[in-house]
Amino acid sequence: MIQLTDVNKKFGAGANAINAVDQVNLDIEEGEIFGIIGYSGAGKSTLIRLLNGLEKPSSGTVTIAGYEMSSVSNKKLREARQKISMIFQHFNLLWSRTVKQNISFPLEIAGIKKTEREKKVNELIELVGLKGRENAYPSELSGGQKQRVGIARALANDPEVLLCDEATSALDPETTDSILDLLTSINERLGLTIVLITHEMHVIRKICHQVAVMEAGKVVETGSVLEVFQSPEAPITKRFVSQVTEPSGTEQAIAHLPTGTLVKLVFVGERTEQPVLASLIRTFPIEVSIVQGNISHTKGGAYGTLILQLIGHEKEIEEAIAHLHEQGVRTEVIGND
């Protein structure tokens, strides 16, 4: 569906040139929700402009639904853009138009007859949960309702790809979850391919199938969300993952512990439900204390972390850790006094 091959985007020239996107390669399958995460300045916004054809790569190719975005004629580019819609952080609604009129706007531009427009708009209002708010103006809506209007408007022309540029960043956590649930429902019901740009790992964890982590214009890590949570490699990925897998106060709790060996356990999928800790206590003559624990749920399954303090003879602790490995639990010694 979407393929980026050796994509570079430079701004400026010579010593002052900025490589906003640096040798990026991505494959996004049809019908999946693909997350691209990075902090400010990572190159996310430039990348999304390359996807919707507002920017052309300095080198490399961007192909969407069979269209090579940088080399197609203007007519073909317009055709390609009809297959791509976008929702924004700040909604970008027409403030002088009602909910119904905002959603209808792209259909008016496309020359769709009034009766067809009204039928389509009513279907979309139902789909995004705005029944009863058809005649309200944006100033009368909550942030979540405004984003629902933006989503409905983006779906008006039956796109194949939906680009979401920090679509939940301006919303509170509860509203964010409701919008993410809506996007998941749309993905499942319409088979729409969704590319989601964000700096929030919670968003990636909740709805994405695959993720790419960006830093300084480069994609430093890609994979299924569960794989990336289980085995993050790049330092920036580990920072993002820790935001949602390690409870706040973990470092402070560890810092005030007395002597002992600190071990971080990682459970994936069914392992999160198994009594591994009880087995450890029964089998080995060591003291086991739980320091912190957390379970996160991704599209690919559950992911849990547990930090234990083990006190006992060194040999017995080593045997206990080896036992955990044998049980399929990934372990990491993070402190040893």
Results as ranks from 00 to 15, higher is better:
12 G>I: 00
82 Q>V: 05
47 L>V: 05
138 P>R: 00
153 R>I: 04
20 A>D: 00
204 I>N: 07
189 R>L: 10
290 I>E: 10
200 E>I: 12
16 N>A: 14
213 V>A: 10
203 V>G: 04
148 R>N: 02
322 A>P: 11
276 V>A: 12
312 G>S: 01
153 R>N: 03
168 T>L: 00
164 C>H: 04
65 A>S: 14
324 L>T: 06
84 I>A: 01
32 E>M: 13
70 S>P: 07
278 A>I: 11
149 V>M: 03
125 I>E: 04
291 V>F: 10
73 S>K: 09
305 T>G: 07
27 D>W: 11
279 S>F: 09
12 G>R: 03
71 S>C: 04
112 I>A: 01
291 V>K: 11
154 A>M: 00
159 P>I: 03
275 P>T: 06
60 G>D: 07
314 E>P: 08
6 D>A: 13
235 P>G: 05
93 L>M: 05
114 K>F: 02
125 I>Q: 03
310 L>F: 00
90 H>R: 14
125 I>A: 03
115 T>W: 05
238 K>D: 06
326 E>A: 15
191 G>P: 08
220 V>L: 00
14 G>D: 05
201 M>F: 07
116 E>S: 08
172 D>Q: 02
99 V>Q: 03
251 E>C: 05
110 A>L: 08
169 S>H: 03
91 F>L: 09
224 S>H: 10
178 S>C: 06
7 V>R: 00
212 A>F: 11
243 Q>D: 10
248 S>T: 13
42 A>V: 06
264 K>H: 09
292 Q>L: 12
201 M>C: 08
48 I>E: 01
332 E>M: 15
305 T>E: 14
47 L>H: 06
